[in-house]
Amino acid sequence: MGSTILVTVIMLVALGVVLAIILYLVAQKFKVYEDPRIDEVEAILPGANCGGCGFAGCRALAEALVKSNDMTSLYCPVGGNATMRATAKILGGEAQTKDPMIAAVRCNGTCENRPRTNQFEGAVSCAVMAATYGGETACTYGCLGRGDCVVSCPFDAIHMNPATDLPEVDEEKCTACGNCVKACPKIIIELRKKGPKGKRIFVSCINKDKGGIAKKACDVACISCSKCFKTCPYEAITVANNLAYIDFTKCKLCRKCVEVCPTGSIHEIHFPPRVKKEEIGITEN
């Protein structure tokens, strides 16, 4: 009885040792050299695997960063400049610096601004809706309100507002990974410069119909009147295809365009409330 147990134990130990030796030899033979810096870089990256950098995940970006000598074409929008600087420290290259970006929803077609003319009851998906017909309102460009962007966000940073039926971006959470930009079939969401203290100005409309048609469909549509284009002192605004667009690289945040827009389609975010001119007059006196 005792000897049986002993033999079994010895046999198993011997088998274990032999197999371990074989495994060790095989591992040595087929060993793939991996740059230890890849692990280091991966540890610095955010680890969200969002794909905002254009690679399959954080590890793929780390590999690409280590492999390429030139770091300037690669950038992690989620980690931002701090992460890229830390990476550059390890890899010894020059880190690319970019302004922080944020997703901007360029549609303000709330239920009051843009009356619904019909009701869609197919699958709850903007992609399906966009492929089926023009939409629930007379504006065929605006937000469909089915939340494909919400589903696509890996950071829980975009949500539908039930009051307006439009998505709203959570500025704290948004990392500008660009997943919502790709998910929106109407290409309403755009990545724009976050601006100093979050101050930014953009045209919140993408309707390319002629002014009259756009205005009929939605009260706050861009009617391509070109007033903002004429007002802008920095040539940051272009009007093409019946739609104004503010180039955020040229915009100096002077807010002159916001004042002249007759439909209020240009939005200013995080600016202090305007002081009225009359009030200034009173203080001067």
């Binding site: 197919g122 699958a123 998906s125 399906v128 492929a131 089926t132």
Partner: peptide, 11 residues
């Protein structure tokens, strides 16, 4: 909504 999605996939 079978057909809705299949139509989208088909396109």
């Amino acid at each position: 909504s079978l057909l809705d999605y299949i139509r989208l996939g088909k396109t």
